[in-house]
Design a binder for these strands. Structure first.
Lengths: 232, 232
DNA sequence: CGACGATTTGAATAGGATCAATGGGAGTGG
DNA sequence: CCACTCCCATTGATCCTATTCAAATCGTCG
């Protein structure tokens, strides 16, 4: 592992306040790997062998049952995934795959559990991280239960806008197929939802989306602090 | 607070391994109250003032937006709710109301946060509790995304059956309106879903449900360890 | 008994899903 | 550089599920 990588990893929320020795032990056991797109990193139902962090790139969390598949979340740089399974030493509830070329940190689950036994500060940090993850899922769940497909799309566009430069132009961070799955609809339906948003100043050209009527779009979307990540 | 109540509370997962002094401090600050049905205990958006435990009865967690309302979960005896908001000192993401006469333990949020700072064993217990809550929501989310309404109902019936005596007869623990909301459908649709299950041996009489064809029902429901609470 | 809310049933509608077919880029190989 | 191919995305048509609105029925509690 290069020193550069190491210092970057040390700035991850989960490790910031960690005791140096424990951090060193974890790093020693960890793998930092580059993966191409479409590599499956974890498989629903398997025992939790690793805790993962996306360092660069993007990972899709998904689940399958009854011949259907659903995208549960997209994980971006500096975010971890499947922390709960690792802590509980339980099977993964979701599978994970890269959606693009990605650099991923993998820490053996046992090392995480050891550290959490030994290192009090680490345990407290984990709590806050877990609590945040929990609240995020609750928000996603509310989003799905309380909004129509078009509303979900509108709010997602507003989130992308906030995450990016707020220039009025968005670049979709992954393809529309995945966006559709994430929003809980089919690709066909996503296309139609974009059409529905046209009167609200939403212009689609490939993966570039232009928002010409923020006010109108916001009126339609009714973003909500208790559902959406972005504050406004 | 009566000694009986006290010992019962001490057996709650969260407090079992807690240091006696810290436990005493928390109990001293706590309120154990009886509420009639339909009392709202927490309000979405308010700051988290209390951590709640249902001791007896039942509490509905719900959320509202855009003129719609969604039931998120039902909380039964010995279970806590809104732990994450309390730990993060953040606004509640859900509201809570009793659905029947209930006995509820309320612990001021600050006392929980203090204990979590001081008591290492408590902090570790909280992690496992939080991780479990997290996994539960993920399961609920998968349930909603991967199953049709009828499948959700069938699996819920199987869960009730496991929670109760497995005698082939279920007593619904709350009214059908709420069951429908929990399953993400309208009451009308729930009625129709019950009709759909008739060929699978599901007989409805008021709040009593008879399951005459477990095998058939299970074939339809396809219960799944990675979604449902009951194991089989 | 009467009133009210809960539940069921019926009919019409809307929102999404599915199936089928077409258009459009991005990458490959000549 | 261009043609080809493949996959993604769009569009159209149809189907199906679930919601909505309306009305009847059932049950429970005063």
């Amino acid at each position: 592992m290069r020193p550069n990588d190491l210092s970057e990893i040390h700035t991850l929320t989960l490790f910031k306040k960690m005791d140096e020795n424990n951090f060193a032990a974890i790093i020693q056991a960890a793998y930092l790997q580059n993966f191409p797109a479409q590599v499956q990193l974890a498989n629903e139902g398997d025992d939790a062998d690793f805790l993962f962090f996306v360092i660069e790139g993007c990972v899709e969390l998904f689940a399958a049952a009854n011949g259907r598949e659903a995208t549960m979340a997209m994980v971006g740089p500096s975010e971890s995934f499947i922390l709960a399974a690792v802590l509980k030493d339980a099977p993964y509830l979701m599978s994970a795959r890269t959606t693009e070329k990605s650099r991923v940190l993998m820490i053996p689950a046992q090392n995480i559990r050891d550290a959490f036994e030994k290192d009090e500060a680490f345990a407290r940090t984990i709590i806050l991280e877990l609590a945040e993850c929990y609240r995020t899922v609750i928000k996603d769940y509310k989003n799905l239960k309380l909004r129509t497909a078009v509303e979900r799309l509108a709010n997602r566009l507003l989130e992308f806008h906030c995450e990016q430069e707020e220039t009025g132009v968005i670049e979709l961070p992954y393809d529309k197929k995945r966006l559709a799955a994430l929003l809980g609809m089919t690709p066909e339906n996503l296309s139609r939802a974009f059409l529905t948003l046209k009167p609200y100043g939403v212009i689609v050209r490939g993966s570039k989306i232009t928002l010409n009527d923020m006010k109108g779009l916001i009126t339609l979307a009714k973003p909500n602090q208790l559902i959406d990540r972005h504050t406004k």
